[in-house]
């Protein structure tokens, strides 16, 4: 939950100065560069940023190896040199989806032992119910979580910012209609709304992302609207209006950039929240279908094997936990940097 106070002038200056600052001493106090330097001094936030960066890198790598290579394999030029889906994993590691012959199922991690045998370095974190390596599936599963987190947040952020900025800028009946619509979406519990959305359009991952994105529009809309209402009264907006700048340009170039700071913080936190929601959806059986690895689905499968190999459920849970902690910590750090008065 964002806790920005509404009558807060620091934030608006903080984000506007990037384009408008002419006096260097102002730029030293505010602006993106200043924000970044503040974040750099915050060790916890940097740890969060590190986790976020690492997960994003891992997800990008998995995306390239899975989707890009699968796409390239359609073309003769690439297929003839051996490019295929999971090419990297198959050549330098193990395939995250193939069920290897003769591999032992539900092995524990290295240094432990259970009824199926002792853990080996070949499978450092153990194996799942089909004898697949858990570590490789965790790494490739990061893609689904990160992809879903970013894309659904982007949908909610862009949609919410546009709705909220238009409502706040025009006021009157436009405001009433848009905010009542947002309130309507807000009234239905988040997960229930996403479930109903997926029931209507399909249970695939794509609709999970769109559903979570649409369901988060009201949060962003309410947040930016409360800022826009005060930014609208600023002199530079009035000046732009007097100069005859078109509404669209005023909203896009002046109103939104100057109201964006709390949205950025909420966006970072929302990525973590979306990852949790989509993991929950996968757990219920809505989302990515096997054999594609995803953390939520690994957790869902592992619940039937908890007594045999508990590590099968511990690893994906920890992966989700660490990733979401990363986004939350980084988001908190960003908020402290953008508004030091809230720093506790």
């Amino acid at each position: 939950m964002a806790t920005q106070s509404e009558s807060d002038d620091f934030l608006s200056e903080g984000s506007s100065s990037a384009q408008e600052a002419e006096e260097p001493e102002i730029e030293a106090r505010v602006g993106w560069r200043y924000t970044l330097s503040q974040v750099k001094r915050d060790a916890t936030a940097m740890a969060g940023l590190f986790v976020v960066g690492l997960m994003t890198l891992m997800a990008t790598f998995s995306f390239v190896d899975a989707e890009l290579f699968a796409f390239l394999a359609q073309f003769e030029t690439f297929a003839s040199v051996g490019v295929e889906k999971y090419w990297f994993a198959k050549h330098f590691w193990v395939s995250p989806i193939a069920e290897p012959q003769g591999s032992i199922q539900l092995l524990p991690p290295v240094g432990m032992e259970n009824q199926f045998g002792a853990g080996t370095w070949a499978h450092p974190l153990g194996t799942d119910d089909r004898g697949r390596d858990i570590l490789v599936r965790l790494v490739y599963g990061s893609r689904i979580a990160i992809e879903v987190g970013y894309i659904s947040t982007a949908i909610g952020l862009v949609g919410g910012v546009l709705v909220g900025a238009i409502a706040g800028y025009y006021g009157g009946w436009t405001d009433d209609v848009l905010m009542r619509a947002a309130e309507t979406l807000y009234a239905i519990p988040f997960l229930v709304l996403v479930l109903a959305f997926m029931a209507a359009f399909g249970r695939s991952l794509m609709f999970a992302m769109i559903g979570v994105g649409v369901a988060s529009i009201p949060t962003f809309a309410r947040l930016i609207r409360s800022r826009v209402v005060s930014v609208r009264e600023e002199d530079y907006v009035e000046a732009a209006e007097a100069a005859g700048v078109r509404d669209r340009n005023i909203i896009l170039r002046h109103v939104i950039p100057n109201s964006f700071a709390p949205v950025l913080v909420q966006g970072t936190l929302q990525v973590g929240y979306s990852i949790l929601i989509v993991a929950g959806l996968s757990f219920l059986g809505f989302g990515v279908q096997p054999p594609t690895p995803s953390w939520g689905q690994m957790l869902s499968t592992s619940k039937d094997y908890m007594l045999q190999n508990v590590w099968f459920s511990i690893w994906p849970g920890l992966a989700i936990l660490i990733t979401v902690v990363g986004f939350n910590v980084f988001g908190d750090g960003l908020r402290d940097a953008l508004d030091p008065r809230l720093k506790n």
Binding site: F283, L299, M306, V310, S313, G317, L321, V324
Partner: peptide, 22 residues
């Protein structure tokens, strides 16, 4: 508090079932 807001609730449930029930 940080771990609490970042952990999937169903996973907490599963782990508690393992410990306190099984």
């Amino acid at each position: 508090a940080l771990v609490g807001v970042s952990t999937p609730s169903f996973w907490i449930g599963l782990m508690m079932i393992l410990i306190f029930v099984y």
